[in-house]
Design a protein around this nucleic acid. Structure first.
Lengths: 153, 153
DNA sequence: CAAATATATTTTAAGCTTGAAATGAATCGG
DNA sequence: CCGATTCATTTCAAGCTTAAAATATATTTG
């Protein structure tokens, strides 16, 4: 491939990245706004609750931060707030006094069900311009990027 | 369209959103890490410098925050830091004593040229799994989403 | 002109995020 | 068993981000 064609592909990828970023920021901002104004909560709290909802048996703090790909210290603060709201609880782990298991409370589980339904319908509305066929195709392309990134990490 | 088909399309859009978010977070994190470790700077500072570089005549604070789609207070802090580093300068605006015009310094312009070259090559590397043809196609799809979002704001 | 309103910016409080340091507990090699 | 190392978590300092309040200036309107 010629140097010119390479450079052109590079510029196209840069434009794609800027558009990807702009679009995902716009969707994310809309979701944050609605979580805040309609439910008085935040996306980080929603993300933690979503992870906990999928593991009713509870998750260790480190497992939570690994799954969400955020730092340990970050999860500490978010779980602190969920706990203060009565949506999550920390429990000692039998056999390892260093570790803490986090679970949704009954209240947290009910609250999350409401949030998740609203979230799904919002995403569907915000991304409504994309047909199912296009969605499948874009996902396949993004998968190649994600896998590529995963490898080089 | 039947209720079932609608629900299926909705789930597909939700999965697309999650993948879009995951991919753009992964790319963004890689860019942040490299800006930090290789140049001791941040993505917000890079974004502000990029906007200023495109407007050598300077931009008012409010124009800067409008273009970057962030709050005024946010820009205040970032420009404070760029100014402390000697990469940007605030100037009074003739005829409006409320306003401030921000410009890159010579040093800032030179620094940004280095950053921008590295940034472009990083993006090209990180998104290398996408061919130019795929990139063009995805951009078209994202454009419909972005336009749609723009309208409903 | 004076009062009300609008605009440009900064400040503030709260939350999110990170990397690095600190703490306490478990494990491993000798 | 003991010292070193690893591991789980929290704490800390710094920066980013927002919405809302505060400040200062400009514009509009009665």
């Amino acid at each position: 491939m010629s140097v010119e064609v390479q450079a052109k592909a590079g510029k196209t990828r840069l434009r794609l990245w800027l558009k990807l970023l702009k679009t995902s920021n716009a969707v994310e901002t809309a979701l944050r706004d609605r979580l805040r104004t309609e439910f008085g909560t935040t996306l980080p709290r929603f993300d933690v609750m979503a992870a906990l909802d999928r593991s009713p048996e509870g998750l260790k703090m480190s497992e939570l931060s690994r799954r969400l790909r955020v730092s340990n210290g970050n999860v500490t603060g978010i779980v602190d707030r969920l706990e203060a709201e009565g949506h999550a609880e920390r429990h000692a782990v039998a056999g390892d006094r260093r570790a803490m298991e986090v679970r949704l409370t009954g209240k947290g589980r009910g609250h999350f069900a409401t949030l998740a339904a609203a979230h799904e319908s919002w995403v569907n509305e915000l991304m409504g311009a994309i047909t199912e066929a296009e969605a499948v195709r874009i996902m396949e392309d993004l998968d190649t990027v994600a896998r590529d990134l995963e490898e080089k990490r």
